[in-house]
């Protein structure tokens, strides 16, 4: 019969004692460098993942510039600008979280991560509202698609296919990022991170800043195609 007093999960030493690297690394510096390189390698594949969609976008926009301009004018530019601002504020809090982790301020770290996650959720709410408006105006590609403009509506529909694929893939990344930040805020509050060990905060931060960078390109490509 198992001893009820033993914990079921592996024993975790308190943070101040957790200064030793995982057994495959010589020291903490090597472990940190390996973690960062691994994340950057992943982000490189992410750049090319989004890159295929950016390539498709480029070809179709070069081919049908007027239809893309007509489609772009149907989007709410100010909502797109607000999306950008929201993500930039959230990124700022994540950058601050890294600093809080480096200085060992647990409360500030928890606050920054939680705030960043909350602001990221605001992005999802605003973008969800934009999708709702697109749906109500019959701008979702498919049988119900309607477009009352001078441009041919199958070309405008292509614009909206790319719009939903690219912003949808980006929003999926935001959902993952918000969940990640919320979990890290919980862990930070429990005292998982210390000045010796905060790799997850930095690595998670890299991911969140990358998601921000993708949006920085999506915003002008979809909302600001031609002057208003």
């Amino acid at each position: 019969m198992p001893d009820a007093t033993l914990p079921l999960v592996a024993f975790e030493p308190p943070p101040e004692q957790r200064t030793a690297p995982a057994h495959q690394f010589d020291d903490m510096a090597q472990q940190t460098e390996a973690a960062h390189l691994g994340m950057w390698l992943f982000l490189s594949t992410e750049i090319l993942f989004f890159g295929g969609l950016f390539a498709a976008y480029t070809v179709y926009r070069v081919t049908w510039p007027r239809a893309f301009a007509a489609g772009s004018h149907e989007l709410m530019m100010w909502a797109g600008a607000a999306d950008t601002a929201i993500l930039l504020v959230s990124s700022f809090f994540v950058a601050l979280a890294v600093h809080a982790a480096q200085t060992g301020s647990r409360r500030l770290l928890t606050f920054c991560l939680l705030t960043a996650a909350g602001i990221g959720a605001c992005f999802l709410v605003l973008h969800g509202y934009e999708y709702y408006r697109d749906f109500a105006e019959h701008h979702v590609p498919g049988k119900g698609f309607r477009f009352e403009g001078s441009a041919p509506d199958n070309k405008v529909q292509l614009f909206f296919i790319l719009y939903f694929c690219m912003t949808g893939l980006h929003s999926l990344h935001v959902i993952i990022g918000v969940a990640m930040l919320a979990i890290m805020a919980f862990q930070a509050n429990r005292g998982k991170f210390s000045t010796h060990y905060y790799n997850p905060v930095e690595i998670g931060g890299l991911y969140w800043h990358f998601v921000d960078t993708v949006w920085v390109f999506l915003f002008p490509l979809f909302y600001l195609i031609s002057p208003r």
Partner: peptide, 19 residues
């Protein structure tokens, strides 16, 4: 360090090549 610079720019260089 330089190795991170290399990794960070590689993805963008390949993207530009593709485009």
């Amino acid at each position: 360090p330089p190795l991170v610079w290399l990794f960070a720019t590689a993805g963008f260089v390949w993207l530009v090549l593709m485009l």
